[in-house]
Nucleic acid binder design. Sequence first.
DNA 1: TCATAAACGAGACGGTACGTCTCGTCTTGTG
DNA 2: CACAAGACGAGACGTACCGTCTCGTTTATGA
Lengths: 200, 200, 200, 200
Amino acid sequence: MAQAKTRVGEQRPGGRAERVRTSVLEAASDLLSEVGYDRLSVDEVAERAGVHKTTVYRRWPTKAELVAEAAQVHSDEHIPIPDTGSLLGDLQVLAAGVVAEVGSVAGARRSRSIVAAASSSGDLDVELHAFWAHRMAATAPVVERAIERGEVPAGSDPNLIIEALVGPIWLRLLLTGEPIDKAFAHRIAELVAAGATRPA
Amino acid sequence: MAQAKTRVGEQRPGGRAERVRTSVLEAASDLLSEVGYDRLSVDEVAERAGVHKTTVYRRWPTKAELVAEAAQVHSDEHIPIPDTGSLLGDLQVLAAGVVAEVGSVAGARRSRSIVAAASSSGDLDVELHAFWAHRMAATAPVVERAIERGEVPAGSDPNLIIEALVGPIWLRLLLTGEPIDKAFAHRIAELVAAGATRPA
Amino acid sequence: MAQAKTRVGEQRPGGRAERVRTSVLEAASDLLSEVGYDRLSVDEVAERAGVHKTTVYRRWPTKAELVAEAAQVHSDEHIPIPDTGSLLGDLQVLAAGVVAEVGSVAGARRSRSIVAAASSSGDLDVELHAFWAHRMAATAPVVERAIERGEVPAGSDPNLIIEALVGPIWLRLLLTGEPIDKAFAHRIAELVAAGATRPA
Amino acid sequence: MAQAKTRVGEQRPGGRAERVRTSVLEAASDLLSEVGYDRLSVDEVAERAGVHKTTVYRRWPTKAELVAEAAQVHSDEHIPIPDTGSLLGDLQVLAAGVVAEVGSVAGARRSRSIVAAASSSGDLDVELHAFWAHRMAATAPVVERAIERGEVPAGSDPNLIIEALVGPIWLRLLLTGEPIDKAFAHRIAELVAAGATRPA
DNA sequence: TCATAAACGAGACGGTACGTCTCGTCTTGTG
DNA sequence: CACAAGACGAGACGTACCGTCTCGTTTATGA
C-alpha cells in the first residue's frame, strides 16, 4: 500500500534504501527543530517519513543515534573557513556563522538536542567529541594564518582562541539564555581578537 | 520499614518534613552524579531516600524540577568572588572555581544533567536562566573593579568578559570533551584578561 | 480522566483490584472463544476490559499466562462429581460434562487455545498438568466407589479409566474433528464402563 | 553460498527443486523437534536448509502450512496395521506404535506442534482432520477382523474403539503430561479390548 | 492529653514511548 | 526466469518510567 506510493512518485526505485535514509533523517531533523529531543518520538519520525517504525530501528538502533545523525546533517558542511586577511575579520565571520546556526528558534532547538542526545548515550558523546575535534581542526587555519601574518604571537594555541570565540555563544544557548545575535558575535570576536593579538 | 528507622534514630521527629526534603535531594544529587539525568528515575531516588515515590511527587511535581533543585544545591553557595587586585588574578580564580565545579567526573555528570533537565522542561530553563543571570551579576564586580582600577576601559561590558571566561569551559564540558583542568583555566583567563585590558 | 469514572460509578474503590482482575479475565476468555489464542492480542483484551495494557502486564507477565488463567476460570468450577449408583451412570454424566464444556463452538475454541498456549510456554504446561492432576484426582472417587460396590475389580487404576473416558473426547476436539455430542459421550462411557467392569 | 554447495555436491541440477523441498522440510522437522512450533521461525528454517527465506515462502505460503507438511513427513507412512490374531494383541501393537511416535521428547514436541499449527490456521485443521480420517480408516480393519472372528459383537463401531485406544495417549501428551510408555500402552489396550469384547 | 489536619507508605493504575520480534511482501540484482 | 539477498510493512510483544489516584497509617500540633 505504502509501497505502491513509491511506484507512483519515483521512476528509479533503485535507490530505495537511500531514499528511506534521507526522508527519515529529514523528518527527524524537522521534528527536532519543532519540538526538541525529548518530545521527539521515533514513531512520529517514521510516520512523517512515510516509513514504518521498524524500518527506522533497523538502521538506527536508538533514538539517540538517530537524532545524532539527523542533527549533524545540517551542520555538517556549513563550516565556512573565512580568509578576510585579518584575524578580527575572520573571527567575526566565524562567530557570525555559529550565530546563524544556533541563533534561530529552530536552530537552537536542534542544537540543544544534540547535547541532550549525547547525554543519553555514552557512545554518542564520543561521536560528538569527534565531530567537534574535526570542527576545531577545520577552523584552526584561521589562527595559523594570523600567526604567519605576525598578528598573533608564534606559539599561541589556535584551539584556545577558537574555543574562546565559540564557547560564549553556546553558553548563551545552553545556560544563560541571553540573546544570540550578530551584535554579540561581533563583540565576542573583538574581545578574543584583542586578547589573541595583544597578549599580556 | 522506612518509618521504623526514623523512630529508631530520631527521638524528636519535629523536623520530619525537612528531613525528607534533605534526604531526597541528597539521593537525587548522588544519583545525578552516578548516572546522569536520563537514567535517573524518581523511583530509585525515592528508594534511596528511604521514602515513597508519592512523597517525592508531592513536593516536586516533575522529575525535571526535582533534578533542578538537587543539582543547584551544590553550586548554590560556592561562587567565590575573588579580589586579588588584578583582573588576571581574579579571572584565574574564577575560572579555577568553575573548573573545580565541573572538572570532576561526578561534577561533570551533574552539570550536564542540569542542561538536560532544562532542555526537557520549558519552566526549567527559565529557572536556569535566572540562576545564571544571578551568577553573572554576582561576578560582574570583578570586572567593575578592574574598570575602576583603570585596567579595563570604561564602557566595557562586564558580562561579555565573564562569558568569554566561562563559555569555553562549558564548551569543553558539553561539546568537545577536551580535558578541563587548571592549566586550561589559567590559559583562558590569560587570553580573556589580555583582550579585556588591551582592546583594539 | 478515566479514573474519574470510577468515582462516579463506584463508591468503594477498595475492590478495584479484584474488579480489574475479573474484567480482564472475562475479556480474555471472551476473545479466546471468539478468535482463539493466536489472534488474541493483549491490547485488545485490555481495551475490552476497560483497562490499560500495562495493567494487564502488571499481573500477567505474558500473554500465555493470561490466557491460561482466563481459560481455567471457565472449567474450574464445572467439574461435577456424579454419584448415580452405577459406574456406567457416573461415567455418562462425566462424559456429558466434558462434552458440554468443549462441544460448543466457543468452548472448543477456548479449549484448543489452552493447549496451544501450553505448547508455547514451558511454564504453562506445568500449570496445565497441575490443573489436570487436580481434575483427575477429583474424579477418581467415581471409580473408587465402583470398586467398593464390587462393580470394578479391586486394584484397578481409577486414573486409567478416567483417561479412557476423557481422552477420546479431546482426541476428537484436537485432532480428528469428529462431532462431539451426547451420543458420543454415551457410547464412549458404555465402552469404558464395560472394559472396567468386565476385564479380561 | 547455498548455491555453491549444491553445485559442488550434485551434478544434476534438474532435481534442484526437489532438493530444496526436501532440505527445507527436513530443517523444519528438525527445528520442530528441537524447539516446538512457537519458537520455530521461518528464517531459521531457511538458514538451516541453506536456502533463502523467500524461497520457503514461495512454496509454503505460511509458517503453519510449512510446519504441517514437515510434521507429517515423519508420521506419514508409519501406520503399521497389525494382524496378531487377537484384538488385544492388535490393539497393543497399535498403542505401542502411537507411543513410539509421541513418547520421545522430540516426537512429543513435533506432535504438539501439529496441534498448535492447526490452531493457527483454519485451513490446517481441515488437513489435520483429513489426515486423521485416513488414519482411522486405515486402522479400522483391526476391529473389523475381530468382528469377523466373533471376538467383538457385530454392529460395534470400529472408530469408537480406535478412538478409545488412541485418545488417552494423546490426552497424556497434550493435557495431563503423565508419562507415555509401553506399560501405559499395554494397559489401555487391555481396558479397551475388554470393553469391546464384553459389552454390557 | 487528645483530637485532628497534614504528611507519609503502599501500591495499583493510566498513559506514552521505547526497542524487539517475527511474519509475510516487495525490490533489486545475478546466474 | 527462478533465486539470493535483504529491506520493508505490519502489528504485536513486553518493558520502563512518568505522574496520578485511593486508602490506610503515622506524625505533629493546638485546643
